Computed example of a mutant assay.
Amino acid sequence: MGELEDLIVEKGKDGVIIALSGGLDSSTLAALCKKLLGDKAIAVTVASELQPEEEIEGARRVAEEIGIRHILIEVSLLKEEVARNGPDRCYHCKKAMFRRIRELAEELGVREIFDGTNASDSWRPGIGALRELGIRSPWAELGFRKEEIREIARNLGLSVSEKAPQSCLATRIPFGERITEERLMRIWRAEKLIRELTGVKILRVRDHGGIARIEVSRDELASILDPPKIDAIVRGLKGLGFRYVTLDLEGYRPADPPPP
C-alpha cells in the first residue's frame, strides 16, 4: 500500500477534499486520508434528489467514526440534462456534483479533490466529467479493486467493511424514461419498505412505469419468498402506485449500460 500512501501524502500535503458517499470505497479512502494527513483531510457529501436519506445519514456516521471534518452540501441535480435520462445522464450528474465541490474547494483554499472510483468500475460514464474537472481517483489510478479495498477497510476496523454496493436512485429507471422527484420518492419508499420487512442487504426496485421489478442477491432470495412477506410487499408497493410487482429470479446485477 506504499504507493497509495505516497500519492495521498504528496497530493494532499496542502489539503484534500474526499467526496464521501458513505460507501465502502469513499469511506476507506477518507479514513486513509485522515490517518495520513490529519486535519488537512476534509470529507464532503453531496445531498440531492438522487440519494436515499439513509445514504446521507450513513455518510454522517462514517465521517464521525473516522473523526474527519465533514461538510454536507445540497445540490439540485434534477436538471433537464439529468431528468431526460439519456445515455449521458451520469456524466451530467457527476459534472454538476463535482463542479460544486470544486467551488467549495476554492473557497477553502484546497487544490486536490479525491473520489472513490476503483479499478473494478468498468463502466462509469461519469469518469469523463471527473477528469475534466481535475478530480483524482487514487483507487482506480493505482489499480485497487473492490475486494482489495474491502480488506483495507477490515484492517482499519471500519464499520462499512462489509457494506453492500449502493447506487443513486436514478439507476432504477431505464434509460429514456424521464426521471421525476415523484418516481424517485416512490422507489425510495418501496426499497425502504422491503428492507424493513425482509432485512435484505442488496436490493434494487427497478421502476418500469407501472411495474416494480425487485432485484435482491441470489443468496437472499429466500428472505423475500416467505408468503406473508410477499403479501405485505405487494400491498405496500401497489399502495405506492405500482400496478404489478415482480421478483427478478436472475437476482441483483448492476444497471445495464446505456444503449450505443
Rank of each mutant, 00 (worst) to 15 (best):
L197E: 05
N85Q: 13
L142R: 05
M185S: 14
V75N: 07
R60W: 02
P165A: 01
R131M: 08
G67R: 08
E3L: 12
G210F: 15
L247Y: 00
L225W: 11
T180V: 02
D248A: 03
M185Y: 13
P258E: 15
L193M: 01
S48T: 09
K238D: 10
K163Y: 04
A43W: 06
E182N: 01
P87T: 08
E106A: 12
K40W: 10
R100D: 14
D219L: 09
P259C: 14
R84S: 14
L133K: 06
I71C: 08
A222M: 12
V234S: 02
P52R: 06
R84D: 12
Q51K: 11
D256S: 15
G58P: 01
R218K: 15
E141N: 02
D121S: 06
D88M: 11
E49F: 09
A105E: 11
E10Q: 11
E112S: 12
K192M: 03
P125C: 02
I194C: 03
L249I: 06
C93W: 00
E112K: 08
R124T: 09
R69N: 13
R186P: 00
R136E: 15
T28K: 05
R89S: 08
A96I: 13
G22V: 02
P165C: 00
L221Y: 01
D231K: 13
V16N: 04
I149V: 07
W123P: 00
Y91M: 07
P165H: 01
L72D: 04
L184E: 13
E103P: 06
T198D: 06
E65A: 05
D207V: 08
E49C: 11
A190R: 06
P257T: 13
G38K: 05
T45Y: 04
E151V: 05
P257W: 14
R206K: 06
R154W: 09
